[in-house]
Each structure stands twice: as C-alpha cells, then as structure tokens.
Design a protein around this nucleic acid. Structure first.
Lengths: 335, 335
DNA sequence: CCCTCTATTGACAACGCTGAACTACGTGCA
DNA sequence: TGCACGTAGTTCAGCGTTGTCAATAGAGGG
C-alpha cells in the first residue's frame, strides 16, 4: 500500500538504489541491459520519484515558479498557461505565485519564500537593477516581457517594432490624428519603447504626433482605466481619427467608452490594441492588435531556463522576439 | 552564506532542534519563555523552513495543487487567481496543473504525478464516480463547481437557482421566445442543472419553452463555439427575442455573431451570460450575467480543504453557493 | 522528605534520494 | 607480464525536518 521507493525498484531489479537513481537521471555508467532491467522494475512496481527526497538530497525539486502580477488579465493568464504547458512538457512542475507590486516582485525573486523552486520565470513589470540591489539571485531566473536588467536572462518583447508597425498600419490606411491611451508618462509625455515606435512611424511618414492626444490611465492592467481615460479624452473634445491602446485590455475599455458616446468604430475612428489576447478576436468589431509571437517567447524562456538548470553558465542573455500586426475590422477603412 | 537550518536556530536559542520544530509548528509543550527565545533566534538568523525536509519527514509540503482545464478561459483564470491568493493567505503554496480532458482529470486526482501536494482543489468538468473508480484519493481533494461525486468534498455552484433567476429576469421584462446557446445535449435536448432552472422559470410563468431554439456549440470553453452556434441559429431563421448563453464566453461569441448579422442588442434581442467574468462588464453593450458568488465559493473550498488538512475526518461534504443576477444593458428593455 | 505526576525538552532514527569516493573487472598496450 | 585506464556498479554519509519515546526537572501530595 505504501508508495514504492528507489529501494523497492533496486531490489526488484537486483541492483543498488544508486544505480536505479543513475538510470532514472540518465547518467552515463550504466550498461544497456541494466537500464532495461531497471526500467522494467520501475514499471512493475509503479515507481514515481519522490520529489521531496530528491530535492533534499540535492537533485533539484523539478519545480519552477511562475510569477505573474495577476491572472485576471488575459495577457498574463494566457502566457501563464503557455508556460505551464511548455514546462510540463519538460517534466517540470509549475508553482504559480502572484506578485502585484514592486515589493512583491522583489520578494518573489530574491526572497526565500520561493526557495523551493529550482528556477523561475517572472513577469515583473516593475523590475530593474536597483530593485534587485544589483545582485542576481543564486538560481536561474528568466524575466519575461520586461525591460532587461542586465542581471537576468531576459525574453524581450518586440515592443518598438510592433508598435511602430501598427502605427504605420494606421497611417497607411489614411488615419492621421492618432490618439493614445497610455499608462506611464515621463515629463508629461508617454514613455517607453512602444511610444518610441509610435514616434518612429510618424517620422517615416514625415508627420508629427500631437502630444495633446495622449491620455494616461491609472493602470494598464485592466479594462476600466482604458474606459476612464478614453472618456476623459472624449470629454476634452480632442480631434482624432484613431485610438491606439497600449494593450488590448485598455483598448477594450476604450472601445466601450467610444460606443457609449456614439462614436463608430472603425467608421469614425480606428482602434488598435497590443498583445493579441484571445478576447481581441471577439470584440465588436474585432480588434486590430499586435502579436508578440507568444509561442516563440515562451519557447525561448523555457529553453534559457532549462539550459541554466543544465549548468550552463555565463553572463545574462537576451532573446529578442519579433512582433507583427494582426489587422482586423477595428482598423478597417471607413465605408 | 548557506541558508540557515533548524539546527542554526536551535544553537542560537540554546535549545534542541526538535524544540524549535515544536515551537514553529505551534505544538503544545513549550514554555512561553522558550517560545520567545526561539522566535527571536528565528528572526536573528533569518530562518525559513525547508519544505523538502519537512515533507520528507512527514510534516507536509505546504503545497496545494490547483487543477484547471485551462487558463485562457477567464472563468478559470479568475478563480485560479482567487484560490491562489486565498491559499497564500493560509501560508499554502499553489502548484497549478492543467488538465483539459477526462483522462487528465483522472490522472491529476488519482495519479501520483501530483503526489507532492498535501491536497488539491480541482475544476474537473468531466469528473464523476465512475471516472474515479468509485474510490477517493488518499489525501484531501475538493471539487469546485462540478457535480458532486459523493466521493469528495464539493463546492456546488448555484446553477439551477442562478439560471432560473436570469430566465425569470428576461420573462419579467417581456421577452417570450428565449433561445439557448448551450453545450451538452441529452436525447437531443439541452442537459444539466442550468437547463432545469430554465424550464422551472418558464413553468412559473405558465409558458412553454421552444426546444427548437436551443443550439449546442461544440464546446463551452471558448468564445468561438458560441459564435458558430449562434450563426447557425440565425441562418436557420429561428424566431426569438432573447439569447441566453450557457456562460459568458459563449455569450460573447454569440454577441459577435448577432452584431455581424446586424441584430441589435438589446433592441432586437436581449442577451445574457453566466459566471460574472470580468469581460462581461466590458462588452458592448455590457452583458447581463449571473454571479455565482465567487468569493463565497473560494472561501468554502479553502476552508473545507484546511479542515481536512487539520485532520478532520468524516464523509464528503457539500457547500451550496447562492447565485444572483447582475442586470446590465444587454438585457435592457428595448427603446 | 520522598514519591508521583506533569510539564518541558532532548536523543535518535528515520523519510527517499543523490554526490563523492571507492571497488571490481576487463582491455589495450608497452 | 604488468600497468594504466575506462566502464559498470557499489558503499556511505548526509540533505533538513519530524515522530517516537526517553529523560529531566520542578510541583504537589502524603
């Protein structure tokens, strides 16, 4: 009735427990015939490794912590799912941890609470070198989608290229006065790589962006801030023929504000998002967005992590993902 | 530089490791003065328990497996988040596991893969007594939102009451021919507790439901099936003045189909969902839905689980949650 | 003042696994 | 023939914690 142990398998196969361990871990030094006998014994007794024992003995827990700000935001939920499945395919179990502010992110990455994981993949929007006191944790950590700190392996999203491309898409289709529903601002102006892409596209067209058309929501993690910011812009009577959400969630909030005020999409204004979340396909009208090539990003994150777990050393690496526009009706040409 | 152990704390406090363990676990038999000294030592050396060691020695891993069919569906993502946060508040870590079909559910509940968790909370739509071979797993498992099997503690959603209430809501506001966008059918008719609630509401009004207005999507886990099923119903030329989605996701898909065909919501037809997911508030128009009282359900699940972990024995219990309608514009009275 | 009882604490042996170090047995080659 | 070496496998000692049970001390009873 008790769960079988390595010793049970060893007895059955007529070898030492250590040999069984070696076979299971795919260590060298084990004759083919022995391997087969061991695997048969494993199957016969229905052995499953006891992670606690292995972890205690130093063999690693086989557990990866996935840290996200939340799960109610489709962007995080969908990527958490992709990561969990990709990790499971590598026989790695996922511990999900929610860190919704800078302190929690710091604690998750450096603190001991998450110490029973072999490594982590973190969505940490607030992360930077100072937050980490300039020191890297003593186990593999991959940051996903955030700005590289120079301390950790990083999967970088194609924010600049992606936002530039979708801006160009709007300019290409004749839109000229593009409003932004943004999150952070610096010196009263939108900030970040996406905004740089926005400016670059304008430059290519020999146009100048109107800073008065940029409004910042209190947050970019939910739909409500997008709704509120858009409502504010409408109330201020700005003149625009397109609205660009910094991400899909904000765009969905903005869409509702536009409709509430009787503004037609795409006839009166075009609307775009960013992230290619599931919901973008089912808004009315369907939302034009930017795909950050999720699968490539997830694949890179897992690859980087497993390489580090395998002992690969060296300075932090960066994987730069591409991004491409997914045109849908929300940015269609007016009838 | 090494992580401090129980022995370090013990040395610092001048007691045996076992005493430290007793204090940490809040066992009786420990003098107040000793307790204080131990806690001071814990703080002084920055001790954090090593879960692997504790698990090996039989003290439990402090880890709960949360099993969901997926995370791209807001219903699961939002509830997973609530559960993870509620568990974290009890000092329990969450392992997230994705089981998207009956076999995977079975394996997750009975199999040894998830064996390194002290207990589990499972969203297992396909679960039933046969699937479990009539036997309960040897550790606490709470099923969440699915039909009770009689084998496990269960948090039961107010499906009957909730669907009856929202049906009544439509009948109250003058709608008479209610279409259903459903999932499962049995003998060519919609099946399940929600459908029973639907029939009961009709009965109260002395009306008869028209089975021709029920269409089944291939799935209820995504928006696309709702879109397809609705498109089919529209093509068949059915006569209806309201559409009820079996859940929000399906309703969102149906909404897009309705708009695509130029049907106005709520002027031509009313639309309702079920689950009270975040997105329902931000569709255009906002979606009338049913709140299953998530917080109460999550609270009950965690309470049941921790009680079992605390050693509480006895037959499987059931917690029946309430449900109430959240009226929004999608079911408003036509202008 | 001795004995018993209770409160408090400690000693010890696991729990299941792996790293390090070591043995045994050919093989190839000088 | 002797030796170094590579292959195959073993022995042993923990990893950090807890359950079991023994040990100690002080309090209360007779």
């Amino acid at each position: 009735m008790k769960r079988p142990t390595l010793a049970d398998v060893a007895a059955m196969a007529g070898v030492s427990p250590k040999t069984v361990s070696n076979v299971l871990r795919d260590r060298p030094y084990a004759a083919t015939a022995t391997r087969e006998r061991v695997w048969e014994a494993v199957a016969a007794v229905g052995y499953r490794v006891n992670r606690a024992g292995r972890a205690l003995a130093g063999g690693g827990s086989g557990r990866i912590a996935v840290v996200v700000p939340n799960l109610h935001q489709p962007y995080y939920a969908e990527n958490a799912e992709r990561l969990i499945l990709a990790l499971a395919a590598q026989n790695l179990t996922s511990t999900l941890r929610i860190a919704s502010n800078a302190d929690a992110e710091r604690e998750a990455i450096l603190g001991a609470t998450t110490a029973d994981a072999d490594g982590m993949i973190v969505f940490a929007p607030h992360i930077n070198a100072e937050l980490l006191d300039g020191k890297a944790p003593n186990r593999p950590v991959v940051q996903f989608g955030s700005t590289p700190t120079g301390l950790l392996d990083t999967v970088v999203m194609g924010e600049y290229e992606g936002f530039k491309a979708v801006t160009r898409h709007l300019l290409d289709t004749g839109r000229r006065r593009l409003a932004l529903v943004w999150n952070a601002t610096r010196n009263g102006r939108p900030a970040g790589r996406r905004f740089e892409g926005f400016l670059a596209a304008h430059e290519e067209f020999g146009l100048e962006a109107d800073p008065a058309l940029a409004v910042a929501g209190s947050d970019w993690d939910r739909r409500a801030p997008g709704f509120e910011a858009m409502t504010g812009l409408l109330a201020s009577g700005g003149d625009f023929d397109a609205v660009m959400g910094i991400n899909d969630a904000v765009a969905v909030g903005a869409l509702r504000a536009l409709r509430t005020h009787g503004v037609r999409v795409p006839d009166d204004v075009a609307l775009t998002g960013f992230d290619d979340t599931d919901e973008a396909e089912f808004t009315v009208p369907p939302l034009t967005t930017v795909s950050p090539e999720h699968e490539a990003m997830v694949g890179a994150a897992v690859r980087m992590l497993t390489e580090r777990l395998g002992g690969s050393a060296g300075p932090p690496r960066e994987y730069h993902a591409a991004a491409h526009v997914i045109p849908r009706a929300s940015s269609g040409v007016p009838r």
